[in-house]
Design a protein around this nucleic acid. Structure first.
Lengths: 214, 214
DNA sequence: CTGCATCCGGGCCGATACTG
DNA sequence: CAGTATCGGCCCGGATGCAG
């Protein structure tokens, strides 16, 4: 990308990150180190040459490094992008209330949203295991010792299993939909859905408070 | 911009913000509401048609609104971009250690960096007024009641006046350079430079700790 | 099969001219 | 002052090729 040639930290950051696809590559690498092919899977629609070019730029910029096993991974500096990316996810979260009909979805993308809604440590959180099958892709959300962690794949002994279309499941996770509302949108709720709400961050707001207007 | 067509909050946010120049327009509007011409000043190099197109998109997306006086301003949702933008500024701050020879500079861009370095409330902060003349553009940094505020323009009765090239002044503000180092880079220091350091946030790190490598 | 490089059509970007 | 119009060029998107 052409540099903005501005002596401003935001412009400098965007000189590195502002190209199309670049921040989505970072998203994938924040979730886990990736092979080239895994990145292609995780970035539906990216052109092969663009992916290669972006990765080279990110390597030159010391954001991404190629590990010994051939995987791409973030450098220490690159991992610090977790904050700005999470902030963008928080800002964009209200946009998740409607899913475009052509929108692709991957279960692991829930990792960012779950970190946003259930992040932090809170000793008052009860232990809990939820299995989430959004668009048929299973991921697990496990609360233990006050902390909620995300894992890909199914759970062994879940207290709750949510199955349904991704947007309805996200609505239930975020609190935009209640149990009845989510079921009306095609979510099957098996087990203890009430405890899930108690796991949310106290400062997590959804609905109209997260004003998208005015 | 073409949508990424991904049901992911980051992708949705970038569908709105990902175009070239868009986040820099938001930067200007975070600093103050702007007329079209002021935006052009604040965004050296932007093509007029692009600026108009971006503003229209941002209005459609309910991020920007045109006020009664003809100025453009952020909506409530748009103002919430302060967090992701500040996070990007924090991430990009290490890149401010070197200034490209063609880099433009505007005094008001220091507002974001100053908010980063001196933000928050800390009752232990002494009252203080610093006038900063970076590249000949005067801005004022005033500490009062534990809070540091940024204002454009010169100060009436400053405790400290820093004059010099923008990169050296930024080096001194951020702590990357000490008084002697900054003077070696052409900064003239008039008054109490030591108190300035006591105004910084305790969690503000500069130098090698803000790792850009490894 | 994975991990890219090459090629080409189309759309976005950049610079400037122009208008109300 | 506040945009709109225009055009060349570069970046992006999609398909294909190819080497380890």
């Amino acid at each position: 990308m052409r540099s903005y040639h501005q002596y401003c930290a935001l412009a400098k950051a965007l000189d590195i990150l502002g190209d199309r696809w670049t921040l989505l590559i970072v998203r994938e690498l924040l979730i886990r180190p990736c092979r080239y092919g895994e990145l292609q899977e995780g970035l539906p629609g990216v052109a092969s040459n663009l992916l290669a070019t972006r990765l080279h730029h990110l390597e030159e910029s010391a954001v991404v490094r190629k590990a010994a096993d051939g995987r791409y991974e973030l450098s220490a500096w690159g991992r610090q992008l977790a904050e700005p990316v999470q902030a963008l996810v928080r800002w964009g979260a209200p946009l998740m209330d409607r899913r475009g009909k052509d929108d692709a979805f991957q279960g692991r993308w829930l990792a960012l949203l779950i970190e946003l809604i259930f992040g932090g440590v809170d000793a008052a959180r009860p232990p809990f295991v939820a299995e989430i099958r959004a668009d048929g892709q299973a991921v697990t959300l496990e609360s233990a010792e006050g902390r909620v962690v995300f894992r890909p794949g199914a759970a062994a002994a879940p207290n709750l299993v949510l199955t349904g279309p991704a947007d309805a499941v996200v609505g239930l996770l975020s609190g935009r939909l209640d149990r009845a509302g989510a079921q009306a949108e095609g979510v099957s709720v098996l087990g203890d859905a009430d405890t899930l709400a108690r796991l949310r961050r106290p400062d997590w707001l959804s609905g109209p408070e997260a004003c998208r207007e005015a």
